[in-house]
Design a protein around this nucleic acid. Structure first.
Lengths: 202, 202, 202, 202
DNA sequence: ACAAGCGGGACTACCCGTTGTT
DNA sequence: AACAACGGGTAGTCCCGCTTGT
């Protein structure tokens, strides 16, 4: 059985991601990860030179996946409409689709988990997280600006923070959802965000 | 024998609150608390029978303070206007006032910190947190319903989740603010929430 | 049973000293020390904040004991004779007395053990060791100089290194003794040193 | 397939020798050796079946080199003089030559390093070390006995331990040199040893 | 002859909580 | 109300050595 290092590494990352979202980083022991991944310490420390190294690898992967998601949603939205306002509304709608039908609260966002744990939140890691958020801002703000130039909004608003409100709603809804034990929170909040954008620009 | 006007118990709570928001609960050792509070283990375990007991005491106090804040804001808003929609808008505005002029990102919300750490989030504690959130929902939803009956909103919306959006914006803005390193996030996001409510009902 | 922290600390030091001389520092686990001292990890780390801290405490104590030994021998030698050459010879003789009748090789010198283990041999620790050695040099060189001025030696020699030869013989004899398994090495070598000094100055 | 004229096995031995003298055996991890030698675990365990095996190979090689040195020095000394006393004095002198001009303290003797680390000092290894030392004793004692029979010494001394004093000075000087940070210690101490022998027999 | 991957254990450091004492 | 001392356990790290493949 030729050993496949890459798949082992992936398994460690998947297991760790879930455990850290649930328990927090410090409360997630390496032994817990080993047990769930079905490996031993030797294997773990072969792939990651420390627990902190794992943490860094996790956010990096998470940021990459986030970037792919952004790209995918943008591409699809631009195919479905050529109007920038509609594109934004569709982007929100597609996001809602992703989280419909949950039977329990979403496990949450790694960035949020990290930002409440200083030891994880080195400047390097914070940079990765913020880059990821600014990616969304950049894409949305472009479209909002285009919408604004086509038809002036009902109120004068700051477009940067309006774009940021998309992620804000995500982060906030994760917390609310977990606290209230309600899986539907995120979808409902996204709908409000869509309403707001729609009211502003039409 | 109270020292410095601040009892030992209070000092432990204050120090712990800050440390836990920054580091997370598991990564905050009792020794760290002792050091910052300038006391010894004996003193700590005299006031709290375990670390978990401290965690519970912290949320309880936090929930109480939150309740006082809610009451205070409602009372002031009702003094300033008798129109329910205006009262809501004023409540948001007063909240903005509280967080204007920060020079660094707000340390965040204990509920959010707890909800990403399972060991802290027993059903009892989750209950305390959700009660606190439902308090705000109850107050806001009453006023929104009254506003709705005075003038039908431009779009049909779910009032419960519209009320929840207030806390959602708080929680989300804390995360965004810490990640982007921007102290102004919360105020800006609250303004969008106020805009949304205003657009809906006028 | 009132707990006596000082005696616990002493027991740890005694046990560690013996174990480290026998096994080397790195090969002496804290668990070995705990077992021999009859204590637990909690007690150990209460008294020493790290293993390195123990190492430092050990040399410091060893250097102090060495200093007391030097003082004691000098005082006795000066009581037994007022002639500086005789005093030196007596000092060597008294040292021989201390190591007569061993039934197995002497466990050795902590300085020697440390100097072959870089991690222990920080500049601070090396300073402690060298100070201890220079103490002996200083005392001996004074007397040798006085002897020299009374009667010129048969050969012109460097007095500093002649004084150092005393400790050199100690260190060398420990190694030889352990390697050959011969408890008598040290006494015999000290006798040669005494012979040499005697031949030189008479 | 020898690289750089130095086989992998040789490189492992050279690197290990230096590291062990500096750090001690237990504190020298195989990984450190691999890194310095630029090889991987596979290569190491191909040449040595365990870390203990490496330790044995190291002393064996060291003892061999020591034996060659002894032979070389004896041969040269016997060429330079036919008088046994002179031969001894020349042997010491040639040894001094070897260690003149050091710019930092000599790294020390593997035997000394081993004798403070029980796990390395099996009876087998101790045998190798003591054989090496007894080799020198044998050669020197022969010559000293011959010198004694030509001219009775000024003092009656034990010739075995007088011969041993040569190695004793070596071992002791290594320790002193490392501790005082003085590269010249060994040469100076050897000179005293030569003085002593000269005074005794002339 | 050597490289990648991993098993399993040992070690240091630290942590939570208790006890005896004041 | 608080402190010194300590019990007992666990976390993260590292380390040695084996296996499989080339």
């Amino acid at each position: 059985m030729p050993r496949d290092g890459e798949s082992t590494r992936e398994r460690i990352l998947n297991v760790s991601h879930a455990l850290i979202l649930a328990n927090g980083f410090a409360a997630t022991s390496i032994d817990m990860i080993l047990e769930q991944a079905g490996i031993t310490k030797g294997a773990f420390f072969y792939h990651f030179k420390s627990k902190a190294d794992l943490a860094r690898a996790l956010v990096e992967r998470y940021a990459e996946m986030d970037h792919h998601l952004l790209t995918d949603i943008v591409v699809r939205a631009e195919k479905l409409s050529s109007d920038p306002l509609q594109q934004v509304l569709i982007m929100v709608g597609l996001s809602q689709e992703l989280f419909e039908g949950l039977t329990e609260p979403h496990p949450g966002c790694l960035f949020a988990s990290y930002c409440y744990q200083k030891e994880l939140f080195s400047e390097e890691v914070r940079g990765i997280c913020s880059t990821s958020m600014l990616d969304w801002r950049r894409v949305l703000v472009d479209k909002l600006r285009a919408a604004q130039s086509r038809r002036p909004p009902r109120m004068t608003v700051d477009l940067d923070s309006l774009a940021d409100m998309f992620m804000t709603v995500f982060e906030g809804a994760f917390v609310m959802s977990k606290t209230l034990g309600d899986p539907s929170t995120l979808v409902k909040q996204l709908r409000h965000y869509r309403n707001y954008v729609e009211l502003l620009f039409s």
